[in-house]
Amino acid sequence: MKHPALTLPARQLTIAWQSASLLLDYPDEALRERLPLILRAAAELPAAVRDPLCRTAQAVATKDLPALQAQYVETFDNRRRHNLYLTYFAHGDTRRRGVALLRFKQTYLRSGFVLDDSELPDHLCVVLEYAATVDQRLGSRLLLDHRAGLELLRIALAEADSDWHGAVQAVTATLPPLAGDERDAVARLAAEGPPQEEVGMTPYATPAFDAGVQPLPMPSFPGGQR
């Protein structure tokens, strides 16, 4: 599928995607220590990307950490419309999702990036780190191919007034404007939700879903190595 070209310079994409990857990860003290660096780096981004990133960073910086961690779990682990696995929106818990996950892993391997089975390859933090630090062209293609799910996540977090809405909003702001077919896909997903199927999604196990000048640190997630 051919996608419109991205409009931001490569350096700004790296800052935006890497910052969002860090901010969307489970909040801990290490993330809090990185927030001043994230905010300094974000200062050179366009306002449409910088401002929502900074809103999420400020929430992470000012809220009580145990309460924030509990809020993170409630947001992303317990709500179907808020999950961070991109292929879930299009394929749900079906066998077709297994094929989509394999495509993510094969894309990473093309760049020499090895991800073991301790994390699914379509997790948004993983995809953003890959796009920011390994291969912008292939990483952006993964984001654009799953644009409808990403936009649905943004809308759902906005409706919930979530502290993490800003990080996802910043990611979508780095992408080209939605075309007509993409808007239709978002509306269809919002109305129908992901498909369901009782069989497993071999070859991957399905997670449970209930109802530059300022170089940024590398986000960390299990199993990623070059």
Rank of each mutant, 00 (worst) to 15 (best):
K2G: 10
A173F: 05
G224R: 07
A205H: 05
A148T: 11
R97K: 13
G98E: 05
L22H: 14
L6E: 13
P4L: 04
D28C: 09
L65F: 09
L150M: 03
R97S: 10
A61K: 07
Y88F: 10
A90D: 01
D93S: 15
D77I: 12
A16S: 05
D117G: 04
R183Q: 02
G166S: 12
S140H: 04
E192S: 09
E159R: 15
Y204D: 07
T206N: 08
A48E: 05
A67C: 15
A167H: 09
P195S: 12
R81Q: 02
A160Y: 08
A59R: 02
A170K: 09
L115N: 10
R81I: 00
E29V: 10
E192P: 06
Q169G: 01
W164P: 07
Y85Q: 07
D77C: 10
E74M: 07
F209G: 09
A211M: 04
H82G: 15
A43P: 07
T62I: 14
L138I: 02
W164A: 10
T107Y: 04
R34P: 02
P203H: 02
Q225K: 15
S118L: 15
D145F: 00
A100P: 03
L144Q: 13
G98W: 09
A90N: 03
D122H: 04
T133A: 00
P219W: 01
A47L: 04
V199S: 04
V99G: 06
L153T: 09
Q225L: 11
